[in-house]
Amino acid sequence: MQPSENFSWCEVIQHRERLIRLVRRRLPTLHDAEDCVQEALLRAAAHRDLDPDRLGAFLTSVAIRLCVDYHRDRERWTRLLQRTAAGREPEMVEEAVCDREFGRWLLGQAHQLRGRERQVILARADGISVAEFARINQISVKAAEGAFTRGRARLRHMCSKTLG
């Protein structure tokens, strides 16, 4: 990826240490902070019309927003884990084995999907959000959500056909 023609990589990199100090106070590990800063630097480099005088402010804003996204994701996972754990008895070994095998089978079924549906389902299985998938593949979020919904429906149909 080439940096914007308005500024050079050297100008972008000059902000790295400042951003790490800023983000490190907001994220639990140095590794998370470095990932966040790296993403902010890449977004600045990809931004073609960024005013060089606003580079520092842009990087700060992006880094803080990435921290917020990190905490939102953590909160979502926490709520999800609480919902799934609430009212559930401790898992038996047999259940864990069955769940793992079902997950493998379902992943195999996902590989049988076609085109964008397969891509978005496998991306979600790898932890990539639908919005991030859309950005990576340069499609609209609505198109990615539609492919994800169709892919899930096909997987449900495969599952019910096999089980029922």
Rank of each mutant, 00 (worst) to 15 (best):
Q2R: 11
S4A: 05
E5F: 12
N6R: 09
F7Y: 15
W9I: 07
E11M: 00
V12R: 00
V12I: 15
H15I: 00
E17W: 08
E17D: 12
R21V: 11
L22I: 04
L22W: 04
L22Q: 12
R26E: 10
P28K: 03
T29W: 02
T29Q: 03
L30R: 01
H31I: 02
H31C: 09
D35Q: 12
V37F: 05
V37Q: 04
Q38S: 11
A40K: 09
A40Q: 11
A40E: 08
L41E: 06
A45P: 01
P52Y: 04
D53S: 10
R54E: 06
L55N: 04
G56D: 13
A57W: 13
F58H: 10
L59W: 05
S61P: 00
A63C: 08
L66I: 02
V68A: 13
V68C: 08
D69H: 13
Y70D: 15
D73R: 14
W77T: 15
W77E: 11
W77I: 14
W77Y: 10
L80F: 15
A86G: 12
G87T: 11
R88Y: 03
M92F: 14
E94S: 09
E95M: 10
V97K: 13
D99Q: 15
R100V: 04
E101L: 13
F102I: 13
F102K: 14
G103Y: 09
W105Y: 05
W105T: 02
G108S: 05
H111Q: 14
H111T: 06
Q112M: 05
L113I: 00
R116N: 08
Q119L: 10
V120R: 00
I121Y: 00
A123M: 07
R124K: 11
G127T: 01
V130P: 02
A134F: 03
A134P: 06
R135K: 07
I136T: 11
I136S: 07
N137W: 12
K142T: 14
A144E: 00
A144I: 02
G146N: 10
A147P: 11
A147E: 01
A147L: 01
G151R: 00
L155W: 06
H157Q: 15
H157Y: 09
H157A: 15
S160D: 12
K161I: 13
K161Y: 11
K161T: 15
T162Q: 12
